[in-house]
């Protein structure tokens, strides 16, 4: 039984003629890590808001089709109940700070206070999640005083602490350096392995290739490609539509006509795959020569 089910979902923002999402069919299994890619404006954020219940509960407009999580239709649920099942982390870290709290610790505890979790459990869970997301040393700082990347970790911790069944992330690492990105992908992968379902909109394809179970490519509000990370991320049709493509893929594609990449070998997405592929070709050549 899939935990997330979208059937024939079409959505118009208020006062717009063009649908932001069109005929979306999507099923996500429990514990699955799905990455969503696409150019800006392709509908990634809209899809995230739909899964997280902010469409139709916060943004009005017209939602058609079925949006179901854990057997409950979004229209039949209150937003305040829905957010306990589906956690949302979005892009702008600054605006995710509640504004009600003075330290990172309090900020992360905010969601638990609102859901009536007893005090001792709040403290235990907050401490645990601060460790996990690598911000334990920031616990007493003001969330406003942090860098963008640190604020993004706080935003992630603030949702993880609520232990939602489904975690929806809209470009959660946009302001992080490579080291931060690697750590955050690691944490999210770990959550997925513990059974949390993850849907993540993201540009950084090298990371997606290493961590996601499935990739969905959105284009003009529709699902354009869908499948295993490697199949989708190396698909030639992505280039035509201006999707972000790994530089390793681009390099191997340029190498093909020059005979510098083996034809039968799949195109690489990550550094390791590129190193393996180019080394194999070099070894083959040297044997011939």
């Amino acid at each position: 039984m899939p935990i997330v089910k979208l059937q024939q979902v079409t959505y118009h923002y208020p006062f717009t003629e063009k649908p932001a999402l069109q005929d979306i069919n999507l099923e996500v299994e429990e514990g699955e890590f799905v990455a969503v890619i696409g150019p800006n404006g392709a509908g990634k954020s809209t899809l995230c808001y739909t899964l997280a219940g902010f469409i139709p509960h916060f943004y009005k407009g017209e939602l058609k089709g079925i949006v179901e999580v854990d057997g409950v239709l979004v229209q039949d649920s209150d937003l305040s109940d829905w957010v306990l099942k589906v956690g949302l982390v979005f892009q702008n870290p600054f605006n995710q700070i509640s504004g009600a709290k003075y330290t990172v610790f309090e900020e992360v505890a905010f969601g638990l206070e609102n859901s009536g979790v007893p005090r001792s459990e709040i403290i235990r869970r907050v401490e645990e999640v601060l460790q996990m997301t690598g911000i334990a040393d920031l616990a007493d700082r003001s969330p406003y005083s942090l860098s963008g990347g640190q604020q993004q970790r706080v935003a992630l911790a603030s949702i993880l602490v609520m232990q939602p069944k489904v975690l929806v992330l809209d470009e959660p690492t946009s302001q992080m350096d490579p080291i931060g990105t690697r750590e955050v992908f690691g944490v999210i992968r770990q959550m997925a392995e513990q059974g949390m379902t993850v849907v993540m909109a993201e540009h950084k394809v090298e990371w997606i290739a290493q961590f996601a179970d499935r990739v969905i490519a959105l284009w003009e509000g529709k699902i354009y490609l869908e499948g295993k990370p490697h199949e989708v991320l190396t698909d030639e049709r992505l280039v035509e539509k201006g999707f972000g493509v790994s530089r390793y893929t681009t390099t191997a594609r340029l190498a093909l006509p020059r005979g510098l990449w083996q034809k039968e070998r799949p195109l690489p997405v990550t550094l390791e795959e590129a190193v393996a592929g180019f080394s194999a070709l070099r070894n083959a050549r040297r044997k011939q020569g």
Partner: peptide
């Protein structure tokens, strides 16, 4: 990324773009 690829493959020169990489690799 491309520079790292070049370093990993032990290319003689530091490369910055796919073109540079392919020339050096060839």
């Amino acid at each position: 990324q491309i520079t790292r690829l070049g370093l990993r493959l032990g290319l003689a020169e530091v490369v910055c773009t796919p073109q540079e990489f392919l020339d050096a690799f060839e």
